[in-house]
Amino acid sequence: MMNLKQSLKKQLSNIPRWLPIVLGVIALIGFADAAYLSIEHFSNVIPPCAAGSCELVLTSKYSNVFGIPVSLFGSLYYLLVLVLVVLYFDAKKEIYLRIALFCTFAGMISSAIFVALMVFVIHAYCQYCLLSAGTSTALFIISVFALRKYRDEVATSVK
């Protein structure tokens, strides 16, 4: 029992402190981006497009699922990651961080699908969507890094 407690503590300290903070900050950026698109959607406005043809992307049939804009799902995803990170700091329970790390896999897969749709099907780009793909890729890379650390720790503790 004592061992388990110690190993939990050890694992916690081995995840660098900056990691969940960076995770939270990136999730906050992703949330602002996706929330902006959701607000624009519901106020029937097509946001200004600096480059590409974002109106084609944002009004394509892939931009919503059952009438709910994809950006709203995105907002909820980033919000979930953010809440889990804060929960981790708040409750000091590693499980929340772990859930957040695994959630980023779903974010990465969704982003990959949306980028593929932009490149191969819609043939147009939208900077807001690319920013979101960037934030979810960053979350994913950090998560893989963190999960590898966990794995290494398990490996060393088995020895």
Partner: peptide
């Protein structure tokens, strides 16, 4: 954040 975005919109 949400308030700012709505105001900007």
């Amino acid at each position: 954040i949400v308030w700012g975005l709505i105001a900007a919109n």
